[in-house]
Design a protein around this nucleic acid. Sequence first.
DNA 1: TTCGGTCATCGTCGAATGGCGATATATCTT
DNA 2: AAGATATATCGCCATTCGACGATGACCGAA
Lengths: 106, 106
Amino acid sequence: MTEEGTRALSRRTIPRPDAADAELARLARALAHPARVRVLRLLARRDGCIGCDIVADLALAQSTVSEHLRILKAAGLIEGEVDGPRVCYRLRREGLARLKALAAAL
Amino acid sequence: MTEEGTRALSRRTIPRPDAADAELARLARALAHPARVRVLRLLARRDGCIGCDIVADLALAQSTVSEHLRILKAAGLIEGEVDGPRVCYRLRREGLARLKALAAAL
DNA sequence: TTCGGTCATCGTCGAATGGCGATATATCTT
DNA sequence: AAGATATATCGCCATTCGACGATGACCGAA
């Protein structure tokens, strides 16, 4: 990837402007679907939620929900802990905080 | 705003949850491209900016930039005032505030 | 009026998104 | 072992996105 890890001072406060733009755009893209926003809200209420319960909440096919969860996970907004045959999804507060910080800095 | 006290959140501050999800998703979608984030930042620095200057800043074709501006305008995040043969684009603080509020409420 | 500059729109293209059912994989239960 | 449950992945399809050049529309200046 990038060589940007060497400067500890520019850790996550102010990278290059282009990098911040790309990061905010990437996080915003993860939010850019009502189903995914709803998942985040759901996980915010009951912290920790099994996948099949999310499928039940959204009125979408299981495969579709799985794809939305994959996108949220790839964006670092949620995480999934395997628990037997199921997966317990939780919010990643850091990722969400990062998103809020970038949005608030606009 | 309302004077209903801190508990009366289910009345007017939150419309329907689905509506808020859709609204946040719609605004996030407008942010979901680095060029559009960059435009917002540009307009935040120098409030009021001619279209051709935005074209010069982004390294994109004029038609592409125009499309990005159209998306931002449709989302209510910017506005354009016609000034002779050019258009002066500005941030819409209300729209931006709405986005920040919805994101912060996550 | 004609010219130059600014911006929006149109048509087109390739790539990505969002949806689904079907299938594969993994785990628990019996 | 067999069945049930939960999740991820695959293939497919329709739609949208992002980019561009070309064209059209508009205004101010020459």
